[in-house]
Amino acid sequence: MNLEARKYQFIQELVKVEDESVLEKLELILKENQNNWYDELSESEKAEIQIGLDQAEKGEFTSHEDVMKRFSKWH
Rank of each mutant, 00 (worst) to 15 (best):
Q34T: 05
L3Q: 07
I29V: 13
D19V: 06
K46W: 01
Q50H: 06
V22M: 11
G59F: 04
L41K: 12
N2S: 08
F10M: 13
S42C: 03
L41N: 04
R70V: 04
S63A: 08
W37Y: 10
G52H: 03
E27I: 10
L41D: 02
F61E: 03
L30V: 14
Q9C: 04
E40A: 09
M68H: 04
D66W: 00
H75E: 13
E18R: 13
K73R: 05
R70N: 06
H64M: 08
G52R: 02
E60W: 08
F10N: 07
V67Q: 04
Q34A: 07
K46G: 01
L30Y: 10
A5V: 04
V67D: 01
S42D: 06
K31A: 11
F61M: 06
K25M: 10
M1Y: 12
I49G: 02
Q34R: 15
K46I: 01
R70M: 07
Y38H: 09
A5S: 13
G59L: 05
W74T: 04
R70E: 11
N36C: 10
K58W: 00
N2V: 01
D19E: 15
F61V: 02
E45K: 09
S72N: 13
I51S: 11
E20T: 09
E24Y: 03
H64A: 05
Q34H: 07
G52W: 01
F71N: 07
L28P: 00
Q12N: 15
L30M: 13
E4V: 03
E18V: 05
V67L: 15
E65G: 03
K7M: 07
H75A: 12
R6S: 07
L53Y: 08
L3A: 09
